[in-house]
Design a binder for these strands. Sequence first.
DNA 1: CCGCATCCTTCTTGATACTG
DNA 2: CAGTATCAAGAAGGATGCGG
Lengths: 137, 137
Amino acid sequence: MILLDNSIHARSYQAPEGNLEFKPIPSNGICTRLGDKWTVQVLWRLSRADERRLRFSALKKEIDGITQRMLTLTLRNLERDGLVVRHYFPEVPPRVEYELTDMGTGVLHALEGLNFWIRDNLPTIEEHRRAYDKAEQ
Amino acid sequence: MILLDNSIHARSYQAPEGNLEFKPIPSNGICTRLGDKWTVQVLWRLSRADERRLRFSALKKEIDGITQRMLTLTLRNLERDGLVVRHYFPEVPPRVEYELTDMGTGVLHALEGLNFWIRDNLPTIEEHRRAYDKAEQ
DNA sequence: CCGCATCCTTCTTGATACTG
DNA sequence: CAGTATCAAGAAGGATGCGG
């Protein structure tokens, strides 16, 4: 997904006036990434943390249901894209913190429109789904 | 994911001022849908068509690389969610047109912010990817 | 504590052939 | 023309065990 397929809430979304002004640009995997199961959840948790930084274990604790493996993979991809930076402290036991970059913050802002749209339209969509499924038996 | 992983272009994106104002809401599969390989491509083609309607075969011709099977599946999902309506004409040979609903148009508007963000940030992201991959050997 | 390796299951996409 | 059915390939996600 883009937004959470688990989580809650917000203010109102004003659809822009007039016609659609974009031709969709190639996203080179960005959208697939944002649409996966955990990415936005991770970005959002980091955005709410002190100094936009959290330890691996803190993220794992906050994100319900995520496995160590998936958290690692998700963070690696975000790091590779420059949305998150990894800070490694070679203590014993080791400590690792992940920090949201400005670009990481930016993508969350860019998702606000979609977020509000979903909030406003999800009930209607689910209504359609029920009707459709019923018609199919 | 959301925008095209194949396609081009647009105007500028003004990031909202101040702090992030949303807690991501549950999307119930919407985001996964928007993040898949063909959904946005289909929505966008319909949005540019006369009366926002196109025949199945026209869509197939316009969307490079899509198979009959994937176009069918994509349209079924969009129809189920109420983003598209299917008009069936029992002629010989049969004719089927798909029409973008207001809600379908709405979701494209809601994606504009993301679209512009990607256009503006993709070069930087790809730079990060190259650096990351190089560091990994 | 953090993360890698391995194995396994499920989902998504694609290729191809057939039909009202 | 606009599908459906079937099969196969690959990617994504989950479970579990080991290691610095």
